[in-house]
């Protein structure tokens, strides 16, 4: 068997299921007059809102950490990097269980919060926490690499011109690492949009409140409504394709920037 035959087989293995899914979704949606099931529409709105909040949290909390990891070496920095990377390789169901042990009603933080009348598990807030937990590492990794690649001489030049550390970061480091930050952001968004296991364990599966798009794919399939399940799945496929296009564009942009600098 030639190399190209093998490549074609593997490409078919990877691509065929998605192509069939999209065709099935198109057939199902034309049967339904291109209308999405109410449960899918609710989940779409919830997914967009929760991933947006997760993204803002990820940027606000992840950027300082990425700066620290990219620019400083200190005792335990290797351990900190490992902690940040852990959610990427952790099975989501494990993440869900761990989040329950911390934020759950008998959890480390959840129990004192409960005494103050705040309950996190099985709320929309829990969806955002689950998404941020699994997605933030993607942003932090990419941002760290992007910031580490910024030429330190440029930062020093700005300092020599009297820029404060904050100005250096805002005017020099982050703009130069911009495409890596944006690529990380897009990857983090994709991961939070697709988050399933931690959400269903920690946030439950309540329509309109914690039932995001991936949960609708599962719940409607479990309940036997294949059309609704397929519709939600098709939206997620389109979003994933958009993410790939965006990441490629951003990397292409960086390549051009490098060539211009050279």
């Amino acid at each position: 068997m030639g190399l190209s035959t093998l490549a074609a087989l593997i490409a078919a293995f990877l691509g065929l299921p998605i192509i069939v899914l999209v065709i099935r979704a198109a057939m199902a949606s034309s049967d339904a007059g291109f209308a999405l099931a109410p449960a899918v529409l609710d989940a779409l709105g919830l997914s967009l809102a929760t991933t947006a909040v997760s993204l803002v949290l990820t940027v606000l909390l992840g950027t300082p950490l990425a700066l620290l990891l990219a620019r400083r070496r200190f005792r335990g920095s290797g351990l900190l990097e490992a902690v940040v990377d852990l959610p990427i390789v952790l099975p989501p169901s494990v993440a869900g269980l761990a989040l329950l042990f911390v934020f759950g009603r008998r959890g480390l933080i959840g129990e004192p919060l409960g005494l103050m009348g705040v309950s996190i598990p099985f709320t929309t807030v829990a969806v955002v926490i689950a998404q941020s937990f699994v997605a933030a590492p993607f942003f932090i990794r990419s941002a760290r690499a992007g910031i580490a690649a910024v030429d330190r001489d440029l930062e020093d030049a700005a300092r020599a011109d009297g820029a404060s550390e904050l100005q250096v970061v805002r005017r020099v480091t982050l703009p130069l690492a911009g495409s890596a930050l944006a690529a990380g952001l897009v990857m983090a968004w994709a991961r939070s949009l697709g988050e399933f296991g931690a959400t269903i364990m920690f946030a439950g599966n309540l329509p309109g409140r914690t039932q995001t798009l991936p949960l609708v794919v599962y719940a409607e399939f479990q309940a036997g409504d294949l059309a609704a399940s397929t519709g939600a799945a098709a939206i997620l496929v389109l979003a994933a394709l958009g993410v790939l296009v965006a990441v490629r564009t951003l990397h292409w942009g960086r390549a051009l920037d490098v060539r211009r600098l050279a």
């Binding site: 809102a49 909040v53 911009g178 495409s179 930050l181 944006a182 942009g253």
Partner: peptide, 27 residues
């Protein structure tokens, strides 16, 4: 082509707008 310098603030702005729309949801 999307310029990265524009993409990031635009994404953050979009996220902020959506955040405003969602902040009330848990309430």
């Amino acid at each position: 082509m999307l310029r990265p310098g524009i993409v990031l603030p635009a994404l953050v702005a979009l996220a902020t707008v959506l955040l405003g729309g969602c902040a009330g949801a848990p309430d």
